[in-house]
Simulated assay, not measured.
Amino acid sequence: MPEEATPVTETVRRRLRSLRVEQGLTLEAVASRAAIDVSTLSRLESGKRRLALDHLPPLAAALGTSVDDLLRPVEPVDPRVRGGVRRCAGLEMLALSRHHAGMGLQAFKMTIDRERIDPPTELPVHPGHEWLYVLHGRLRLLLGEQDLVIEPGEAVEFSTLEPHWFGAVDGPVEAIAIFGPDGERVHLRDGVAVDQAA
């Protein structure tokens, strides 16, 4: 039976979860550092287990903070994403999601210049998976032996272990892209970060 929440226990629970997620840590990682069982930590965060004072020092140490910091109320987080635009090799990418350590997939609004029409001699390959949705323009996708034109309103998803490249067909392209850290690094290799336009 869940313990009756008090302002202090509720503050600590929220702070535990907030700090853990902020640092991109799993329940398993924090539990291991604090030398407690992962199910205990999960129950502490959810309020299904009573929070005792002796839990605080090891949990604070596991999260690289102090007991005082655990007792500090969680400040409301502004949900708006204010990522910058990055440009490289005819691609402009605006982050639509926050980048956290250990976080997997990321979302971007991608603009492909009309001049991006010549694929490299060797198509990139990297671990992961990509998903693209074309908003405007016609996107050329080279995927292994396939040479495809993706029209507005169409989506594609594929393993990035398959050689791939995308460019414009007959004008600029706007798309939503979702991919992991490896995809971001490959597509924006030597990319230049610029301020987001207001």
Rank of each mutant, 00 (worst) to 15 (best):
L132N: 01
P124Q: 13
A107P: 02
H129C: 06
G104F: 07
H126K: 07
P127R: 14
R114P: 00
V125N: 01
T111G: 00
G104E: 13
I112F: 02
W131K: 06
Q106A: 09
Y133P: 00
A107C: 15
H126S: 02
H100V: 14
R114Q: 11
I112N: 00
H100R: 12
H100W: 09
D118T: 15
P124F: 11
D118M: 14
R114V: 08
Q106E: 14
P124A: 10
M110F: 02
T111K: 15
H129W: 13
L123T: 07
R116H: 03
H126T: 00
G128Y: 07
E115G: 03
I112D: 01
G102D: 00
L123Q: 04
Q106F: 03
R114F: 04
I112W: 01
E122G: 06
D113I: 06
D113G: 01
T121M: 06
L105N: 03
D118F: 10
T121G: 09
P120N: 07
M103T: 12
Q106S: 10
P120L: 13
D118H: 15
M110T: 04
L105K: 12
L105W: 13
Q106M: 10
I112T: 02
E122N: 13
P127Y: 13
P127W: 07
L132G: 02
V125H: 05
E130D: 15
A101R: 05
I112P: 01
E115M: 09
T111R: 08
L123F: 06
H129F: 14
H100P: 03
D113K: 11
Q106T: 12
G128A: 09
M110W: 04
P127I: 13
G102R: 00
A101D: 06
P124H: 08
V125A: 07
T111V: 14
T121E: 11
R116L: 08
G128H: 01
W131Q: 02
P119R: 12
T121C: 02
G128I: 05
P127V: 12
H129M: 11
P120I: 06
R116I: 06
G104T: 05
K109T: 07
R114Y: 07
L132M: 07
A101G: 05
P127G: 12
E115F: 08
H126P: 00
T121L: 13
P120F: 09
P120S: 06
P120A: 14
Y133N: 04
R116V: 10
F108Y: 07
G128L: 10
T121Q: 11
L132T: 03
P120M: 11
T111N: 09
Y133V: 05
F108C: 01
V125Y: 00
G128F: 03
E115P: 00
D113W: 04
I112A: 04
I117K: 15
L123C: 04
R116W: 00
T111A: 08
L105C: 02
F108K: 01
P119T: 04
R114T: 09
P119I: 05
D118I: 15
M110C: 03
W131C: 04
E115V: 07
L132Q: 09
P120T: 08
E130K: 04
E122C: 10
P119D: 01
P127T: 15
